[in-house]
C-alpha cells in the first residue's frame, strides 16, 4: 500500500516519537531513579529496601491476595463459561453482556458499594440476620480485599476464557465422546488443553492488576492493610521519595516480566 520508504517513515514518525517520549523515556527514568540516590550516585539501596520487614510483609501479602483472587476467579469463571458455551449464542451473548456492562460503571463507586454491603451493620449482615445466620465481620480485613479483587477482575477472566471455549469445535468434543471417552475424560484431555490460551491470558489479566492495586486495599482494607501498591503510592504522593518508590516499582516490574515469560513459554508449547 505504501510504496516508498519516505511515506512509511512519515506515517511511523508520530507514533514512534510518541512511544519514545512517553513510553520508553518514562520507563528509563523509573529505572534511573530506582538505581540512584538523591545525589545522583549509583546505589542498590532502593532495590534492597524491599528486604525491610514492613515492605517484605506488604509484598508477601500482595502476592498472597492476588494469587488467591486469581485462583478464585478461575474457579468461578470456568464452570460459568462452560455453561455459557452450551447455551445458544444469543442467550450466552446476553449473559456476557451482563458481565461487560458493570465495567462501564466507575470502579471506585462500585468498590465503595462493597463497603456498604460488607460493613458491620451492612446489607450482608442485615440479610444474614434476617435468615437467622450469625453476622460476619470482614470489612477492613484481607477477605474484603479479596472480594473486591474477585469482583473487579472477574470479567477479565470470563471474557478470554469464554472466547477460548466458544472457539472449540463441537465436533472435536463429539469425536472424543464417540471414541468412548466419558464426560470427565473429554474435559481433561480435550476441553481443558484447548482452553489453555484463554486460561493463561485470563490469569495475566487478573493477577497483574490485583498484585499492583492500591485502591482496593485502601477502600476495603480501611488504611490498615498496606499492599505493595499502597507503599509505592505513598512514596510518590506523600513521602516524595521518588528514588525509593522507583526502586520498589522495579521490583513490581520484575514480577510482571516473570509473568510475561511464563505466558510466552505457554504460548510456545501451544504452537508445537
Amino acid at each position: 500500500m505504501i510504496r516508498t520508504k519516505k511515506i512509511r517513515n512519515l506515517f511511523a514518525t508520530p507514533y514512534l516519537s510518541w512511544a519514545i517520549i512517553f513510553i520508553i523515556v518514562p520507563l528509563v527514568m523509573v529505572i534511573w531513579y530506582g538505581f540512584t540516590d538523591s545525589d545522583g550516585a549509583l546505589t542498590f539501596a532502593n532495590i534492597a529496601s524491599i528486604a525491610r520487614p514492613e515492605f517484605m510483609k506488604s509484598l508477601g501479602l500482595s502476592l498472597l491476595l492476588s494469587l488467591i483472587s486469581t485462583v478464585l476467579c478461575l474457579i468461578i469463571a470456568y464452570p460459568l463459561c462452560m455453561i455459557l458455551t452450551e447455551k445458544k449464542a444469543g442467550k450466552a451473548g446476553v449473559v456476557i453482556l451482563l458481565f461487560i456492562l458493570p465495567m462501564w460503571m466507575n470502579t471506585l463507586l462500585r468498590t465503595m458499594a462493597w463497603q456498604t454491603i460488607l460493613e458491620k451493620t451492612g446489607i450482608l449482615n442485615i440479610f444474614l440476620n434476617f435468615i437467622h445466620l450469625p453476622s460476619i465481620y470482614i470489612i477492613n480485613k484481607p477477605q474484603a480485599i479479596i472480594i473486591g479483587m474477585v469482583y473487579n477482575f472477574l470479567p477479565y477472566m470470563v471474557l478470554p476464557l469464554y472466547t477460548a471455549l466458544s472457539r472449540i469445535d463441537d465436533n472435536v468434543i463429539n469425536a472424543a465422546r464417540d471414541l468412548g471417552a466419558n464426560k470427565f475424560q473429554t474435559f481433561l484431555h480435550v476441553t481443558l488443553p484447548l482452553s489453555i490460551p484463554g486460561i493463561i491470558s485470563g490469569i495475566t489479566m487478573v493477577f497483574i492488576p490485583a498484585l499492583t492495586t492500591f485502591v482496593l486495599s485502601q477502600m476495603l482494607g480501611g488504611n490498615k492493610i498496606l499492599l505493595i501498591g499502597n507503599i509505592i503510592e505513598q512514596e510518590f504522593t506523600q513521602a516524595y521519595d521518588w528514588h525509593l518508590g522507583s526502586g520498589l516499582s522495579i521490583i513490581l516490574m520484575v514480577f510482571i516480566i516473570i509473568n510475561m515469560v511464563v505466558e510466552a513459554a505457554f504460548d510456545k508449547s501451544d504452537e508445537q
Partner: peptide, 14 residues
C-alpha cells in the same frame, strides 16, 4: 502489560 501504577509514576516522573 505494565501495571497501571508503574505507567502512572513513570509519566509523573517524566
Amino acid at each position: 502489560l505494565n501495571a497501571d501504577i508503574v505507567t502512572g509514576i513513570s509519566m509523573m516522573l517524566l
